[in-house]
Design a binder for these strands. Structure first.
Length: 424
RNA sequence: GGAGAGUUGGCAGAGUGGUCGAAUGCGGUGGUCUUGAAAACCAUUGUGCAGCAAUGUACCGGGGGUUCGAAUCCCUCACUCUCCGCCA
C-alpha cells in the first residue's frame, strides 16, 4: 500500500507513472483519495478540539466533586451532553472517510521504479541478457512429460487420482532429484548468509493482507473456511510476515532469510500447453530468499539477489535469460522485478523459474515494518526472489540433459542425488 | 472437544472509576568516573494522527456499551496459556 504522504506530495507524478508505465488510469481513484484525505484531516481537527473541550469539562467536574461542590458539577454536566453528541457525529464522519480511503488504497498498485519499461503485457518485457540457443542442437529432444513417463520419474495420472490435475506424484529418482535440488538451493543460500527458516504452510488473513495477496489475489489462494486460514502461494507470505508490526534495529540490516515450502495456487483460468506437465501446478516446491533492508540499500540488494539466482542457474548449467518486467506485467506490489527464465528444449520455450522483486515500502507500510533512523521512524524495504522454483527447473534440467539412453545429472547435484544417471 | 486463567510500553511486570500515557525492573541512548572496557552513578527514552510550531488528540488485544470521566465496570469477538480428553 502506498503511503498517504506520497499521494499528498506527488499525486500527479503517481498518476502519470501508473498511466505511462503500467498502462492503467487511476487518476479518479488517486484524486478521490487526495480529496477524502483533506476532508479527513479537517474532520480530525474538529474532532480533536471537541475532545479537548470535553476533557477540560470532565476534569473540572472531577475537581468540583472532590471539593463537594455537587451543584456546580451537575450544572456543568448538562453542557457535556451537547459536546458528546457532536463528537459522536464527527466520529462517524471520520471513520467513514477513513474506510473509504482504505478501500481506495487497495486499488492502487505500487509505483514502478524509474527503470521499469512501459508496456502492456509480457511481450513488452525487456530481455536484459540471454544464453545463446542453437535450436539444431535440440532437434530430437522430447518434452519432460515424455521423459518422466519413460523413466518413471513423475506420475501425473496418479496425482489426478488422489487430488486432481496439477498435483503430480514424484517417484524414485524423480523424487530424489527434487529433494536434491531443494537441499542444494538451501545450502547455497545458507552459505552466503541467509538464515534458514521452516515456516507454517497455512497463514491467517492478516498475513495474507500484509504481503499484498489479500484482497488483490483472494481467488488465487486455497482457503480453509472452518479455520479461516490460507494455504501459502509462496514462502514470501509467512517469512515476510514474521516482521509484521516489528521495529527492526537498524544494525540488523540486511535481514536475510531462506526457506523451502510447498506453494499452493488455484491457477483459476489457466489451460492448454501452459499447464502441460510441470509447466503450471497447483502444488509445487520452491526455495525462496527474502531480504529486509535499509531503503537506501534496497536496489543494490535487488541486483545482488538477481546475481545470486543467476549463479544457481549457472551452476546447474542451464541456459537462461534475464528479463526486466514491463509495467503491465509487473506484480501489484512490486516496484521493480527481474524474471529469470530457463530454456526448455523439448518444448522450445522459456520457462519462468524466478521472480526477484523490490517492493520498496509497499509491503512494509501494510506490515508496519519499521526501523529507527536516528530519531525518525521509517519504513524498511522488503525484497524477495525465488531461488528457485522447482518444477520448471526440473523440466528444463531433464530435457537439456537427455540423450538416447537416459538423462545425465549435472555435476554440482551428484553429491546431493547420489547418482549421476537416470536410465531404465 | 470440556473446564479455567490471561492479553498493559522494545521486553518483564504493577495498576480495579478522576493530573495514568501509565509505577518498577531490564534493555536502548547520552553523560560522569576510567589509559580502555566493565561495574557504579546521573540524565533521558512508547506509537499513530493533526499542526510551521507551541500544542492538541488517540492508543493498556479488536469492536460496542455504561459514565461528566474507563487500562480499571458491562457485553461481544479474537488470540494466548494451564488442566482434562483425543492423538502423530
Amino acid at each position: 500500500m502506498l503511503e498517504i504522504q506520497k499521494i499528498r506530495e506527488n499525486k500527479d507524478f503517481i498518476i502519470n507513472r501508473l498511466n505511462e508505465v503500467r498502462k492503467i488510469d487511476l487518476s479518479d481513484t488517486v484524486n478521490k483519495i487526495y480529496k477524502l484525505d483533506e476532508q479527513k484531516r479537517e474532520t480530525q481537527q474538529k474532532l480533536d478540539s471537541s475532545q479537548a473541550q470535553l476533557n477540560l469539562l470532565s476534569s473540572q467536574i472531577g475537581g468540583l466533586f472532590k471539593n463537594g461542590k455537587i451543584e456546580e458539577a451537575n450544572s456543568l454536566k448538562i453542557q457535556t451532553a451537547l459536546i458528546k453528541d457532536q463528537i459522536k457525529q464527527t466520529k462517524e464522519v471520520y471513520s467513514k472517510l477513513e474506510s473509504s480511503i482504505d478501500e481506495l488504497f487497495c486499488l492502487i498498485p505500487n509505483v514502478p521504479n524509474e527503470l521499469v519499461p512501459s508496456g502492456i503485457s509480457e511481450n513488452d518485457n525487456e530481455i536484459v541478457s540471454s544464453s545463446e540457443i542453437n535450436k539444431d542442437d535440440f532437434k530430437s529432444f522430447v518434452p519432460h512429460w515424455d521423459l518422466c513417463q519413460k523413466y518413471n520419474l513423475i506420475d501425473f495420472e496418479l496425482g489426478v487420482k488422489i487430488s486432481g490435475a496439477g498435483f503430480p506424484v514424484y517417484k524414485g529418482k524423480g523424487a530424489r532429484l527434487q529433494r536434491a535440488l531443494i537441499n542444494f538451493f538451501l545450502n547455497e543460500a545458507s552459505e552466503i548468509g541467509y538464515q534458514e527458516l521452516l515456516v507454517p504452510h497455512l497463514v491467517n488473513e492478516k498475513s495474507g493482507f500484509g504481503t499484498g495477496q489479500l484482497p488483490d489475489k483472494e481467488g488465487q489462494m486455497y482457503h480453509t473456511e472452518k479455520d479461516n486460514l490460507y494455504l501459502i502461494p509462496t514462502a514470501e507470505v509467512p517469512i515476510t510476515n514474521i516482521y509484521r508490526d516489528v521495529m527492526v534495529n537498524i544494525n540488523d540490516f540486511p535481514i536475510k532469510h531462506v526457506g523451502y515450502t510447498p506453494c499452493f495456487r488455484r491457477e483459476a483460468g489457466s489451460y492448454g500447453k501452459d499447464v502441460r506437465g510441470l509447466n503450471r501446478l497447483h502444488q509445487f516446491d520452491k526455495v525462496e530468499v527474502v531480504q529486509i533492508t535499509h531503503p537506501e540499500k534496497s536496489y543494490e540488494t535487488l541486483n545482488e539477489m538477481v546475481k545470486y539466482v543467476e549463479s544457481l542457474l549457472e551452476k546447474l548449467e542451464l541456459p537462461y535469460r534475464k528479463l526486466k518486467l514491463c509495467g503491465g506485467d509487473l506484480g501489484f506490489t512490486s516496484a521493480l522485478t527481474f524474471d529469470l527464465e530457463v530454456y526448455s528444449p523439448g518444448q522450445d520455450r522459456w520457462l519462468e523459474v524466478s521472480s526477484v522483486s523490490n517492493f520498496e515500502t509497499f509491503q512494509s507500510n501494510r506490515l508496519k515494518l519499521r526501523f529507527k533512523d536516528g530519531k525518525k521512524t521509517k519504513l524498511a524495504h522488503t525484497l524477495n526472489g525465488s531461488a528457485l522454483a522447482l518444477p520448471r527447473i526440473m523440466a528444463s534440467l531433464l530435457e537439456i540433459n537427455q540423450d538416447e539412453k537416459g538423462i545425465s545429472i549435472p555435476k554440482i547435484l551428484i553429491p546431493f542425488t547420489g547418482f549421476d544417471r537416470i536410465e531404465n
